[in-house]
């Protein structure tokens, strides 16, 4: 019986310790920085590729090395190779447009009932061409809600691109997630 008491005490102490260790505010700053860094890197990294759906984060960085390896024969910086590719593949919007053709803007992190999210939109000029939510809770019912909202709102053919505003229809069964999405999206549009 003494062992049972010890084990139960250990369970309580262990659970508390784990939660406290993960929840410590010192570590919180670092975690918040990660998406911010990704967001600031993304606009520079995503090359001028109009019409192409820029998938966020990993895809953008993955395409960079592939670009640098392909034209390895041409000596030059990464910048020159980056500009070299679209000239062959895409219309020459890059050189003519005064502004870079697409850019991404990331909205603030919005906390809601099941977690937190931030919306990143990709704009071509002033037109939203893509949107996605980052940091959505995965798994469980919250994950299902996340998936629903992502499916309705995000993507190049999602409701955000269709309506060009943050005034979206709420996804039924995912009110909180929809609301958080719209708040972050509105802020991102305001920033853009």
């Amino acid at each position: 019986m003494r062992r049972a008491v010890l084990a139960i005490t250990g369970l309580a102490a262990g659970t508390t310790a784990l939660v406290v260790l993960k929840g410590s505010p010192g570590a919180g700053q670092a975690a918040q920085d990660i998406p911010a860094d990704q967001a600031s890197v993304a606009p520079g990294g995503s090359g001028p590729a109009p019409g192409v759906t820029p998938t966020p984060g990993p895809a953008g960085s993955a395409s960079a090395p592939s670009r640098s390896t392909r034209p390895s024969s041409t000596p030059g910086t990464k910048k020159s190779t980056a500009t070299a590719r679209p000239t062959t593949a895409a219309p020459r919007t890059t050189t003519t447009a005064p502004k870079p053709s697409t850019r991404t803007v990331t909205g603030p992190t919005v906390d809601y009932e099941y977690g937190s999210l931030q919306v990143r939109i990709t704009l071509n000029g002033s037109r939203i061409v893509d949107a996605t939510a980052l940091g959505l809770p995965l798994g469980g019912q919250s994950g299902l809600r996340s998936d629903d909202v992502q499916a309705r709102y995000s993507g190049t053919s999602g409701e955000v691109v269709a309506k060009q505003s943050a005034n979206l229809d709420t996804v039924s069964g995912a009110t909180a997630t929809s609301g958080a999405y719209q708040r972050s999206l509105q802020a991102a549009i305001d920033q853009a």
């Binding site: 993960k22 505010p25 975690a31 918040q32």
Partner: peptide
């Protein structure tokens, strides 16, 4: 799976 500091 749990981001440090995500437990606010």
């Amino acid at each position: 799976d749990t981001l440090a500091g995500s437990l606010a």
